[in-house]
Amino acid sequence: MNKSFKFHLKLFAQTFQISAFTFGGGFVIISLMKKQLVEKLGWLDEKEMLDFTALAQSSPGAVAVNASLLVGYRLAGITGAATALLGTILPPLLIITGISYAYDAFQSNIYIQNSLKGMQAAVAAVIADVVINLGGKIVKEKSVLNILVMIASFVCVAFLKVNIILVILVCGIIGLISTLIKGKKGGEK
């Protein structure tokens, strides 16, 4: 665990940057964290990031806040969690405080709206990149169960509007049962 002051500064800078560009829901910040913290900096491995996503989704509160707490804690303990939390809540705090004083000007400014519209398409591209990357890996594992779980949870959430918590619960139980069955088979040998 890296607890130097310099690392905390870096962690703060990263979470601040990521949070400042998290337009949209919790999965946007997860995608940005995966690109920056996993792929670029190598601070975490991919499995941990997916575990943290599931934990952040199923805990109360904003997903972005939960994910940054988990990542910060993993990287540098309690002080890391505090640093990551601060980095994540400062950008919206500053931006919204500004906007709430200049609300009308912001709402009617066509140039701001246009830039935001451009960024929206880029957000879709960033998440597409992450989806292709993660989905490709699941397919390459060639576990039929995992591929089915991935497709089923996509269909359930995207089209059937099933509650995310329910999906997490059911898939956790499926994982548990398949491990128990495998364990039993291993024990009999």
């Binding site: 998440i127 779980v149 991935m150 949870s153 996509f154 995207a158 999906v167 898939c171």
Partner: peptide, 18 residues
């Protein structure tokens, strides 16, 4: 085991958000 079941589900949910 539980986390192993959750990982593909999380990928599915990210796809849905996308």
């Amino acid at each position: 085991g539980v986390l192993g079941g959750l990982r593909p589900a999380v990928v599915g949910m990210i796809s849905s958000a996308w």
